[in-house]
């Protein structure tokens, strides 16, 4: 018997067509070059000698086709605005990110069961991002947090949409779905539950000097956003208010 594979929902054809153009542009052929005069040699700078180097520009554009495997239900859940986790029937561990097999050595790779999780959690830890990879630059500044969803034993990386100086470890948050969902963790974000006070021992807030420095460098980030993307500080601050 031949194995049959059927596409039961297709949200990919337009991008496959669109990508053909990038693939053609990014086809590994040399698009330009520079001649560069620079130090050569293994030793200290003072011992180096200049040589002329030919430096080429060669692109590489790729579109991957990747299966989410047996955790597909989680990502389809994001598109359908439901947050799923899994639970091990042997040791009762609740996983979010989900695992379809329990990793507890005692459970001998037991199959877990899908459960729906509440749209609430708490910040286990965080970083305030003032720089990031290309795809995220326009979102700066943002809070990258590991959030433990209520009822789950693990933590999920989520952006918390809040003023960066308001974040703290242990903060209670609500999980929200973004308008345009595409099937990854950026489909959700977190917002702080209202009415919480920052604990005195919050590591971000212990020292006024640290907050001053963070505010100083946030200003640098706004200047960068304005220059690179024409995004104004007021627009950034609106993101944190519009929930």
């Amino acid at each position: 018997m031949a194995e049959e594979v059927r596409i039961i929902e297709d949200k990919a054809t337009p991008i496959k067509k669109e990508w053909e153009e990038y693939a053609r542009k990014g086809n590994w052929t040399v698009k330009g070059y520079e001649m560069v005069r620079a130090l050569s040699g293994p030793g200290r700078i003072e011992d180096g000698e200049e040589e002329d180097f030919m430096v080429i520009y060669r692109p590489h554009g790729v579109l991957y086709r990747h299966s989410y495997g047996l955790v597909s239900k989680f990502f389809k859940g994001l598109i359908d605005k439901t947050l799923y986790g899994t639970k091990c029937p042997v040791c009762n561990t609740v996983y979010c990110p989900p695992r379809v097999h329990c990793w507890n050595p005692k459970c001998r790779v037991a199959e877990t069961e899908w459960i729906e999780l509440p749209l609430r959690g708490k910040v286990h830890t965080f970083s305030v991002m003032l720089f990031s990879a290309d795809a995220f630059l326009e979102m700066l500044p943002f809070v990258l947090a590991y959030v433990q969803i209520n009822g789950a034993d693990t933590a999920l990386p989520i952006q918390v949409v809040t003023a960066p100086t308001d974040i703290f470890v242990g903060q209670k948050v609500r999980i929200k779905f973004r308008e345009n969902r595409k099937g990854d963790l950026m489909d959700i974000y977190a917002v702080p539950v209202k009415g919480q006070t920052t604990p005195e021992d919050s590591c971000l807030h212990r020292n006024n000097r640290d907050i001053e420095h963070l505010n100083r460098d946030l200003e640098n980030t706004y200047a960068f956003l304005n220059k690179r993307f024409g995004i104004k500080k007021a627009e950034v601050e609106r993101r944190w208010k519009a929930k």
Binding site: A133, F136, L144
Partner: peptide, 10 residues
Amino acid sequence: FTVGGFYNGY
């Protein structure tokens, strides 16, 4: 990777 895409953050 999908949330921030930057080791410094993790």
